[in-house]
Structure formats: C-alpha cells, structure tokens
Design a binder for these strands. Structure first.
Lengths: 242, 242
DNA sequence: CACAACAAGATACTGCCACTATCCAGTAGC
DNA sequence: GCTACTGGATAGTGGCAGTATCTTGTTGTG
C-alpha cells in the first residue's frame, strides 16, 4: 500500500508518517522505484502502536524510539521486557549531584531508605536502576516538603504495587505468538500505567465522597470547615491562560 | 526577605521566580516601594510546592496554576480535594468526537463498559468526570490494539486502585492544620502517583526476574527464545538523537 | 551627597519539541 | 504528454518553559 492509504487507514496525516520515518520510529517501506515504496500491514500496526505510546502512554518521540528499539532488538521476551522497562522514561528525573552538604545527606538517607525497603520486600533490583534512583529522589523531595512517608506506609504501597505488577505480568504473558507477546508487553508496561492512574483517581473521588457523606462537612480531624489560603498573599490571578 | 534571598533559600533562579510571579503561580510580595517588595516564609513554601509539582509531579505551568488556584479558593478541605483532583491533568486526553461510525460505536461500547465497572464497584462518579471519559478512551484504544482487558481483569485492577486510594486518603487526612492539610492533599494526589509508578516498575522488574529464574529462558507459554521484530522492515536506525 | 549594587517590572529572546508545509525530482496511469 | 501523486529533503510553525536584557527606581556605604 502507498503512504496515502497507510494514512487513510490509520488516521495519521501523511506528513506525520514521514516524520516518524525520519525519526526512525517506523521502518521504511519496500522501495519499488526511486520515488515509490510499498507499505504493509505491519506498518499500519506499528503506526497504531506509535500512536498509542505517544498519546495514551504520554511518551516522547525519543522515548518511543527507544522502546520500539528495545522491542525489536531483544532476543528473548524477557530481554524485551527488561529493555522496555528501562527504555520507558522514569517519572522522576534523576537530579544532578547536590552541591549543598545537607542536601547530600538527605539524598544518602533516602537512598538507604530505598535499599532497606527493597531488602524488606525481597525485591531484587540493582542500585543503578533508574527506578531506584528516582524513588530516592522522590522520597528526599517529599521529606523536604514535610510530607514524607511514615514508616510502613511506603511498604504498604509497595505491597499493592507488587499485586498490580503480578496482574501486569499475567496480562503480558497470555499470548502464544512471541512477536505479539512482546508488543503486548510494551502496551501493558507503557500504556496501562495511565489506566491505573485513572482508576486510582476515580477511587479517590469515591473515597472523598464517602467521607463527606459519613462525617458531614468535616473531614479527617473532625474540624469545622476552613478556608485555607496564603496568609497574606492574594491568590493567583486568573485560572485560565495568562 | 528580598527576591534574591528567596532565590538563595529555595535554589530557584531569580528569573524563574519572576516568571512564576508573572504566571500567577506565586502571589506578589508586599510592595514597600515602587521597586521593592517583601517576601515571607509562605512564599518560600509555595515555591517549594511549585517546584515539587512541576519536577516531581510532572505538571505543566498551567496545570500547576490550576491546582494551586483550587487549593486557594476552596472553602472546605473536601472542596480542595475535589478541585485539586479535577485540576490535575488527566493522563489520557479526551478525544474529539469520532467522525468514523465504527469508531463512535467502539467509543459507546467502552463508555458502557466503564459505567458497568463503576456500578459493579459501587463507585459513584458523574459521567462527566474527565477520569471517566479518559478511562473510556483508553479502553477503546487498547481494544483497537488487540490488548483489551479480559472481563474481570479491569475489576481486579480497580480493587487494587481502591486500596491505594484508601492509603492516599489516610495519608491526606493525618494533619490538624487545615492549610497544611490541603497542601498535603495536593502533594498526595499529585506527587505520589509517580512514586507508586516507580514502585510498580520495580515490582515488575522483580517479577520478571523471578519468572526467568523459575523457568529458564522461556517465559509465559514455555516457548523457546524468539527474536521478534518486524517481518520485513529494518529496525529503527540509531537509538540516540537523529 | 555621590555612587555602586541591587530590586522590580516589562519585553524580548532562546532552545526544545512535535509536528506541518513547501519544494523538487521522479513515476503511474490514462 | 499530462496530471496527480510519491518519496525525500529542508525549512517553517506554534507552544512551552524558562532566560536575558533594559529601564526605572531604591538602598546604603563612604
């Protein structure tokens, strides 16, 4: 099929398809002449995957390229899973080394806390994993905001995360065809995170509603209604564009 | 304190502070003269919150403004929670109405599925909630990719999400001061999502490692190693920049 | 008081990203 | 032969998140 038909069938503009080709997200078609190439069904499927990764998964073009590269290069499915997991962007960016001394100490404390957690859960992960680093950074920053996790809280979250991951793996493992399996794994790892986030938000909404219904206007501590806000400053101007 | 000291104490460049002021994220200081203003401790705290929302929470400037506005304007803490929840960007953007007919049908099916799920879980959420819409879009797209959730799978995820939300609410409710409580709620709702995502990734890594150890090279279906890839296309060129 | 150093606010500029448009030489098919 | 279309290269667009510069005014030290 020609590029125009590929565009028609996937709903992606021709210019965008060309852009993805340039960026190496989509393999080139089989050239039949100097100015003609033939695309197949696998290009349409790949294009759908690209669209899903970028719009649903929120991945950048570079991240998408890395993920697809991992998918194509891995010899084994586990290899693909690992590579994809590492190719996905880490939600919390690693920070540059802290110049401050207190900062460095806080970072070390957080890192120790993460190691301890992993040991307690018997999760095996290398210290160099971007996820381990990101977790340490996040914990450090949360403590700076006086919103650190109480001891045990983080472990409770971790146990739930483990259950979620078990479901993920089951979902990723339920296919026979290895190619389809690797692709499914990508989808589960990359795209299902937003779905879970949505479920969590809905659950939060429901919980808030329940507590309001149960306790009247008060919430949590049983205090009356309050109007929080900055003590002296005026609130930000408009909520729309600037 | 002057702007330079505010900058020194928070590590945010003066130019960026001015930018946040312009964008309405940070209330103006108390003007003491035509070219002088005084900032207080609450400005430093707000600045730390802004930094956390943008770098840890991954929020855009506009989204941060909305969240902070919700926090400042809400009369009650539950109001703040609800407003913040709606001000947070939805991970899956709502799509424009489908021109295609089959597309519209798929959207309707997905919407029905979501309603059913909510009813089964006894979660009360308005159909107009952006989270409900986002979930429907995500389910529709996943089905298009042949990676839809099997019946019951989604409910299993939802139950776990409910447990996570319960932990969230406990964390958000554990303070006496209403101002601090609202701020904590923002942090829990906005920033802890990436933390959970990291935990999930680590758990996934561990699960993969366990399965590999248990089953040798094979995975899931017990098939031998495979080298997936596009049937005819060459793999994407380089993994670095273009 | 003079003057260097800094402050506030307005405006303009920068770099990055994800496209999008234009141009060109080369088929395809009537 | 003529028109419509193709692949490929190059350049342009619009949005975002700052960053830099400039002007005017203030401070406080000698």
């Amino acid at each position: 099929m020609k590029i125009s038909e590929l565009s028609r069938r996937t709903g992606v503009p021709v210019a965008s398809i060309k852009y993805f080709l340039r960026q190496g997200l989509l393999p080139a078609g089989r050239a039949t002449a100097a100015t003609l190439a033939e695309y197949g069904e696998e290009h349409a499927q790949r294009l759908r995957l690209i669209k899903a990764l970028t719009t649903l998964g929120g991945l950048s073009i570079a991240a998408t390229r890395d993920v697809l590269g991992a998918l194509d290069q891995a010899d084994t499915t586990e290899g693909a899973l690992g590579a994809v997991s590492y190719a996905l962007p880490v939600p919390v960016a690693a920070q540059s080394a802290a110049a401050d001394e207190a900062e460095a100490e806080a970072a070390a404390t957080a890192a120790a806390e993460v190691s301890e957690l992993l040991a307690a859960l018997d999760w095996r992960a290398p210290d160099t994993s971007p996820h381990v680093e990101g977790l340490a950074v996040a914990l450090k920053e949360l403590r700076r905001l006086d919103a650190g996790y109480a001891p045990g809280e983080l472990a409770a979250y971790a146990r739930l995360a483990e259950s979620v991951a078990r479901l993920d793996l089951e979902r990723a493992a339920g296919l026979d065809d290895p190619v389809a399996l690797a692709e499914r794994a990508v989808i589960v790892f990359a795209i299902c995170a937003p779905v879970f986030e949505l479920l969590r938000r809905l659950a939060q909404e429901d919980q808030v509603r329940r507590r309001v219904a149960a306790e009247g206007t008060a919430f949590g501590t049983g205090r009356g209604p309050a109007a929080p806000g900055l003590a002296d400053g005026s609130p930000p101007a408009t909520s729309g564009r600037c």
